[in-house]
Design a protein around this nucleic acid. Structure first.
Lengths: 158, 158
DNA sequence: CATGATTGCTTGATCTGTCAATAATTGAAT
DNA sequence: ATTCAATTATTGACAGATCAAGCAATCATG
């Protein structure tokens, strides 16, 4: 079965150094941090925050926009929207110009939560960037772009 | 309600540039790619592969080791182990030296799947690294380290 | 060697994320 | 105008991830 041949290859020992492993871990840790902060500060979930933030900043005004900007699954957006409406943080409408799309607006209460939470998330972002030195700060977004594009290919030279 | 004050702040427009947003997207894309490849090549799930790979390379020999290396939840490992055993890819035992731990070994069939899959995952890793230039390749792991450590803090200067 | 604390794993409950199917609306083309 | 395709949102089903509770084995301490 030639078990030894693969196991003793020193390169295999570095499996935990694979990029995808590291990305998973960073992602998990970032998520856990955000969840903790959001729960403590505003009692909302991470997905709820992402939606609130998109609307609150004006980055998106419809469910469709949120999908395009964030790549959050439309199903998730639909359910989160419903939850936020029931919690009284968000109001929706179907514009006459296109009655398929769902337009969203923060309620006063939603706006308040957004404005209360944003500084925390901004500080958090700053703390993450501060953990990197100047060169790294300059280069990180470019790297993430390239990786995302590369990972979109299904035909990586097979 | 001072809605405009926040919305018109140009910095708020860059919310999609937040590090965590980008990491989420890279993570999602990488996952989707891996899932597609693993399903096509070996008919296994991503978590199953991660476990198989840890055992196959000798990076880990027990469930505990896998937990420490990968930060996969012990519950997940327990369930995946069971699934892999039932599929005949993995065998387990409780060593006399410490009867709490679960020692794992690939069956011949598991070993075959591991060896068949590894080249694909290696090529994939290489394709990702090739998408970066030399400077970026040199710096990326350090960045991920720093981010992971920074994200582990719950007290980012509030 | 008895007790309490820790470690390793398992199970159940729950939530998130993803995918496929469907409905409703709009757009395009004949 | 009518038909076909594309877009947008919703729903249901299911796998993945996370958390808490609990059990069994081991370790540390006196």
């Amino acid at each position: 079965m030639s078990t030894g041949a693969v196991e003793t290859d020193p390169e295999n020992r570095e499996l935990t150094q694979f990029l995808s492993y590291r990305i998973v871990r960073v992602h998990q840790t970032l998520n856990a941090q955000a969840v903790a902060v959001l729960d403590a500060v505003a009692g909302i979930t991470l997905t709820q925050w992402r939606l609130i933030a998109m609307i609150g900043t004006g980055t998106a005004t419809t469910a469709r926009d949120v999908t395009r900007r964030t790549m959050i699954d439309p199903a998730m957006i639909s359910r989160t929207t419903k939850a936020l409406e029931e919690a009284g943080l968000l109001s929706t409408s179907r514009p006459d110009s296109d009655r398929r799309v769902v337009e969203m607006e923060l309620t006063p209460r939603g706006q308040e939560i957004f404005e209360r939470t944003l500084p925390f998330m901004r500080t958090r972002q700053q703390a993450l960037m501060d953990a990197l030195d100047e060169d790294e700060q300059a280069i990180i977004f470019g790297i993430l772009d390239k990786l995302e594009r590369a990972a979109d290919r299904r035909d990586f030279g097979q």
